[in-house]
Design a binder for these strands. Structure first.
Lengths: 153, 153
DNA sequence: CCAATTAGCTTGCAAAATGCAAGTGAAAAC
DNA sequence: GTTTTCACTTGCATTTTGCAAGCTAATTGG
């Protein structure tokens, strides 16, 4: 008897920690979703779609699904509006904040035209104490605040 | 007059630091090349090919090219053997070590079967002081040593 | 209460990227 | 001088992407 079962994409190529992390995250688009959530406080499909890099609708849907599958995001319905879906970061997802911050730091150093120049305060805090600032930001993101304006200015 | 110029892939979607970093690195395969260089001390096309995740030959070539283009790697001929090419990390590439380490830390925490369990000492050092250990490893990688056995055991 | 709008997707399809096997060319080994 | 080795390149079937259009259920506006 054949049961209907969801295709599990557990064909992990290796348990090398670098490879595991890369496969869990998925790809570039997935990390941009995380960026939108952490830095811009976005929570919905419609908000992600407006990102400057331009998500294709199907790609956005598939990456959201992947991130949920990977346990990085969770999806809930909006109590007020039955059409809306609210995405949020799990603890596992929140744990990616320090990684995201290291990437910001690298780009701030190596991209002459980096927009990181507009947030020197945050970049400096990351440089001095990534873990510390990550912990603070984590709590804000958890409360749905995104990164507070005082870090960004 | 038309000069012959290499196609510059500067169609950068945005100068958002997260996006810049992602585009500079390229993709999953590119980061695995960096892992092989930092953790396993690999330097040549043939060595990369043997990686457990299984590079396709054309993909490996295109990612090496991309990383050179991005200023993360450099390619030199081997003085002893005219067939061989030696790849090494630029300063810009070495600056990615802390990012790689954060990824290792994340996977060590969230992958039950992580091979990171075989290198508890290094994982612990990263957790306590990513920057510090990155600085040390950087010098070793620069000298072509890869990560020293004492960190790995 | 009914038409129009909105949110979140899905589908179709052309174009691009991937993965595998086989081939190439130059240098080194035997 | 024949065989290997090294670093790729090429061909081609398969998969993934990107874009536009369509779909469905919930909500808003009149």
């Amino acid at each position: 008897m054949v049961y209907h079962m969801k295709k599990v994409k557990s064909a992990l190529r290796s348990h090398c920690p670098v490879n595991f992390g890369l496969e869990a995250i998925g790809d570039r688009w997935a990390l941009l979703i995380l960026r939108d959530m952490v830095f811009r406080g976005k929570r919905s499909y419609g908000e992600f779609l407006k990102s400057e890099e331009g998500f294709a609708t199907n790609i956005l849907a598939s990456r959201l699904e992947h991130l949920i599958e990977a346990g990085i995001l969770r999806r809930e319905g909006d109590g007020m509006d039955g059409r809306k879906a609210v995405y949020s970061l799990t603890e596992k997802g929140l744990d990616l904040i320090p990684l995201l911050f290291e990437l910001v730091l690298w780009s701030a150093k190596h991209d002459g035209k980096s927009e990181a120049k507009r947030i020197p305060r945050l970049v400096d805090l990351i440089r001095k104490d990534n873990r510390g600032i990550s912990r603070e930001v984590r709590e804000k993101v958890k409360r749905g605040e995104g990164i507070a304006p005082d870090y960004l200015a």
